[in-house]
């Protein structure tokens, strides 16, 4: 599903974010990307959405080499990849329903599809009763659920989560991770970049550790401290 072959990334300011990263993520897999801040987790995720272009190496998503994509193809790649952020990135002037519908509407979905899919998605994340509320009227966990619903409404093959529990309390973090596990169980490949030790250790999924832009450890059913001795 996702293949990194000797990928290096140096930003225009000279900062080296990734060094010769090779990684394969199978369809339907659940993977934690761990490492402290500044080790290259977000940069690796940005390579998958083509927000950045590797300086060297190749990234493949769903059998497609991203270096061969023309700028006009990038939006279509992004429809296969949902993204969830620590700061939710919701539109504050839109209701929960509108935020979720927005992802469908800007991709040109027909209105009857919007009317069919948005309620189903809100039901799945448990927010059907708050569909008319604005993001500032919701708790952090509810805002993150809205963001997850938005990222999934286009039926992506892959869900990337960049510190999805970074702004949430432990209990809410647990609920969000349960939701992500459910989404994964339905066949969506999920990659979660995090430094939340609790959730990694509890879920015991594949753990990949990044240090200074290199993959130092990659373990099935790993723990947060994998590779740290």
């Amino acid at each position: 599903m996702i293949v990194f072959r000797d990928v290096s990334l140096v930003y225009p300011n000279g900062v080296r974010a990734l060094s010769e990263v090779s990684l394969t993520v199978a369809r339907g897999e659940f993977l934690f990307l761990v490492g402290s801040t500044g080790q290259g987790k977000s940069s690796l995720l940005k390579c998958i959405t083509r927000e950045v272009r590797p300086t060297d190496g190749e990234v493949e998503v769903d059998g497609q080499a991203l270096s061969l994509l023309r700028p006009g193809d990038i939006p279509y790649l992004r429809r296969k990849v949902g993204v969830v952020f620590q700061d939710f990135k919701l539109l504050h002037n839109k209701t929960v329903w509108e935020n979720v519908a927005y992802a469908l509407q800007v991709t040109g979905a027909r209105s009857r599809d919007v009317l069919r899919r948005v309620p189903r998605m809100l039901d799945m994340v448990g927010l059907a009763h708050k569909s008319k509320m604005f993001p500032y009227e919701l708790s952090g966990g509810e805002q993150q659920r809205t963001a997850i619903a938005r990222s999934l409404v286009n039926n992506p093959l892959i869900l990337l989560c960049d510190e999805p529990t970074g702004n949430l309390d432990p209990q809410t973090s647990g609920e969000i991770m349960t939701l992500l596990a459910r989404i994964n169980a339905k066949g969506t490949t999920v990659i979660v970049a995090t430094h939340n030790q609790g959730i990694v250790d509890r879920m015991r999924r594949r753990v990949v550790r990044l240090v200074n832009g290199r993959i130092t450890h990659d373990e099935e059913r790993g723990r947060y401290h994998v590779g740290l001795g």
């Binding site: 006009g72 939006p75 992004r78 429809r79 990135k89 539109l91 992802a103 800007v106 990222s151």
Partner: peptide
């Protein structure tokens, strides 16, 4: 940025 992330064309 959000529009682009959810796959809106240019």
């Amino acid at each position: 940025h959000i529009m682009q992330l959810v796959g809106a064309t240019g």
